[in-house]
């Protein structure tokens, strides 16, 4: 069984513009993500439901399928 075999892009994807990037280095991806995430975390401070404790306690569903 093959392990850690890095994939090469073989065929053009269905829609090239929306293809996920292959072989992006982990560190690059993370750095970019964390940097940008800071402003998003500010936003989350604003939009997270107030009074989380009460909210999650009161979120009760009936079981479904």
């Amino acid at each position: 069984m093959s392990t850690e075999k890095q994939q090469e892009q073989v065929n053009p994807p269905v829609d090239e513009t929306e293809e996920i990037e292959l072989n992006v280095k982990s560190s690059e991806m993370d750095e970019e993500f964390v940097e940008d995430l800071d402003s998003l975390l500010d936003e989350i401070d604003e939009i997270l439901e107030e009074d989380s404790q009460e909210f999650v306690e009161n979120y009760i569903q009936r079981g479904g399928q």
């Binding site: 850690e4 994939q7 892009q9 073989v10 996920i20």
Partner: peptide, 20 residues
């Protein structure tokens, strides 16, 4: 192709797929 891509990355480090 994408199935292989995610398995390859999960093998190295799942956090590589933190946008996926």
């Amino acid at each position: 192709e994408k199935w292989q891509y995610v398995l390859d990355n999960l093998e190295i480090d799942p956090m590589r797929l933190s946008q996926h």
